[in-house]
């Protein structure tokens, strides 16, 4: 794929993620990790090739069907993309509201989830008043609140301390156990090594390694 008339930022990628799998995407900055996720969450189209998701070629999906597919994808954006005019609670509840959920039906779930990510006392807070780590956790809560079939997270532990990173990781593992396919872009080698999960390693837009990373490797 490419941005506008720029160069191809991802080339010759072929891989398949099993339903219910858990992968990391690693690689140096600018390798194309975020771009790869964009292809999957329908924010970019491949110049060539196919992207299959849930058994459909999403690069050729009719426009009217895209919103419904997007509701099955949870995304944690690198820059969070919280809505500044909504409280933490309303931000987290956004996907449920968009999907047409009734407030009474999701209210308790959202409150519970926010408590789980450590925002029990910040539910009415506006994003501008949240610390970086709190925003990160809110972004994660929003991404997982509607139990997506696949969760894409771009550097989800970039702004939190080690303890919170492990906590977030455990949340992902929990979701994964419930059946969510997980793909996390990160350069947190420590997290990747400890997880023992398979890795897609990108460099310069190409996949150079694919498999479980040996803990002994740097």
């Amino acid at each position: 794929m490419r941005y506008g008339r720029g160069p191809e930022v991802l080339k010759d990628l072929t891989f398949e993620l099993e339903r219910g799998s858990f992968h990391f995407v690693t690689g140096p900055s600018g390798a194309g990790k975020s771009s790869l996720l964009k292809l999957i969450y329908l924010a970019a189209k491949p110049t060539k090739g196919l992207v299959h998701l849930f058994g459909q070629d999403i690069s050729r999906l009719a426009v009217k069907d895209q919103p419904f597919l997007r509701r099955r994808i949870g995304v944690v954006f690198q820059e969070f993309r919280l809505l500044e005019h909504l409280s933490a609670f309303d931000n987290a509840a956004l996907p449920l509201r968009i999907a047409g959920g009734r407030p009474e039906s999701y209210r308790d779930d959202v409150a519970e989830l926010l408590a789980w990510v450590g925002l029990r006392h910040r539910m009415h807070a506006m994003p501008a008043t949240l610390a970086g780590g709190e925003k990160q956790r809110l972004a994660i809560a929003r991404a997982v609140v509607n139990r997506p079939d696949i969760l894409l997270a771009d550097e989800p532990t970039g702004n939190v301390d080690h303890e919170m990173a492990m906590r977030i990781f455990r949340l992902f593992v929990e979701l994964n156990r419930l059946g969510t396919t997980i793909l996390i872009a990160t350069h947190d080698q420590d997290l990747v090594a400890r997880s023992g999960r398979p890795v897609l390693h990108l460099e310069g837009g190409r996949m150079v390694r694919h498999g479980v990373q040996d803990e002994a490797q740097p």
Partner: peptide, 19 residues
């Protein structure tokens, strides 16, 4: 003032900023 979630106080905010 507590930021604790208060279901009675909460009402879904509009998708767009009010003003």
């Amino acid at each position: 003032m507590s930021e604790m979630f208060d279901a009675a106080r909460w009402k879904p905010a509009p998708f767009l900023p009010e003003a």
